[in-house]
């Protein structure tokens, strides 16, 4: 994961604002990241942290208005998606960027067969004939592990279980061999044993197809098992970013550190009492002028109220490529003395 490989996707300074009657909500604040070929980037954060809105902004999946993109660049293989015409963007969605949504129950159209929904992007983007598309659809269903694929093409979504529907969603997202697959909490609505099936499937598909994946979740357990690199979001911005092992072994941001301690473990000694992050996530109704986490932070000091910390490198490497954190406080693990 050096600076070497050329990223498939590069996002710089993205800002998304929702204009509501009650004022503006600054959902995404200056988010920058990149995604390398074949890499799986995990995005962690709680509800309202801006993780889904960020990813939906990339291909303008948000209703505009009320959403408004206030700036930034989204470079997909060098092409800035924020400057494309609607027709150009249409050619990107589904073809170059696939999207898997959280809820497999509601993201398939109940009145069309599963087959026609998988064939739709193939005919739209790849210009396939009906027969070609059907053949490819069978291939895709087999790829995601649905038995008896040819027969299941004629089934409707309600005839599938939750796990199977999520497999169908993945098949649709993979249909046109996208460069980037964005998965928004794809396993959250599923039971643990079904979730384990889907995670294994994704690992297998990555080996076979080698695409780059952005995996949004609030479940640190899922991230630990599947991601190469992790980006932690809070208050609409990236607060920490690191390779997965580094993030879990050496978390720097107080939020990440607390988050790792609030979840009980399944093995090892049973913790006597869970650590609590007191308070509530911030309401983002104004541009951030101070650290969004300060109200809940145990290391809060003057600087936190004065200015919103910029991302700084922890290991001396370029920001976004090594381990970086947006925090005024320095974790005591390094030689520097924690001030304040």
């Amino acid at each position: 994961m050096a600076e070497g490989p050329v990223p498939v996707l590069e996002v710089k300074g993205l800002r998304t604002v929702f204009r509501t009657r009650g004022g503006e909500i600054h959902a995404v604040n200056d988010v920058s990241f990149h995604l390398n070929r074949g890499e799986l980037l995990g995005v962690v954060g709680e509800s309202g942290s801006g993780k889904s809105v960020t990813m939906m902004s990339l291909i303008k999946l948000l209703p505009m208005p009320p959403a408004e993109l206030r700036g930034g660049e989204v470079l997909l293989n060098g092409q800035d998606l924020l400057k494309t015409t609607p027709e150009e963007l249409r050619a990107v969605r589904g073809a170059k960027v696939g999207f898997v949504f959280q809820d497999p129950m509601t993201s398939l159209n109940p009145v069309f067969t599963v087959g026609s929904q998988i064939m739709e992007p193939l005919r739209e983007h790849m210009g396939m004939t009906k027969d070609q598309a059907a053949a490819r659809a069978v291939e895709l269903l087999e790829l995601v592990g649905i038995p008896d694929a040819r027969k299941r093409l004629k089934s409707y979504p309600h005839q599938f279980s939750g796990g199977m529907r999520q497999r169908v969603m993945i098949a649709i997202a993979l249909a046109c061999n996208p460069d980037v697959l964005i998965a928004d909490e794809p396993t959250t609505a599923l039971d643990v044993t079904i979730q384990a099936q889907i995670l294994e499937l994704v690992k297998e598909l990555r080996q076979k197809l080698g695409m780059a994946i952005i995996w949004i979740t609030h479940d640190l357990g899922v991230i630990a098992g599947i991601a190469d690199r992790v980006m932690v979001m809070y208050g609409g911005q990236v607060v920490e970013q690191a390779p997965v092992g580094e993030l879990f072994a050496n978390p720097q941001h107080p939020y990440t550190r607390a988050l790792l301690q609030t979840i009980p473990k399944i093995s090892g000694a049973r913790e006597a009492r869970l650590k609590v992050i007191e308070g509530q996530p911030p309401i983002l109704n104004a541009p951030l002028t101070a650290c969004p986490f300060r109200a809940r932070c145990e290391y809060r000091h003057d600087a936190c109220d004065r200015e919103n910390p910029a991302r700084r490198a922890v290991d001396g490497r370029q920001i976004g490529y090594g381990h970086d954190v947006a925090c005024h406080w320095r974790a005591p693990a390094s030689q520097e003395v924690a001030h304040a």
């Binding site: 279980s161 979730q195 630990a224």
Partner: peptide
Amino acid sequence: LLSAVNEPDPVIAARRKRIILKGD
């Protein structure tokens, strides 16, 4: 069921063997 739980620790996650149940 227990083997399917995701432990928030990449070291353990890489080591452990899951029992993947077939079907629903």
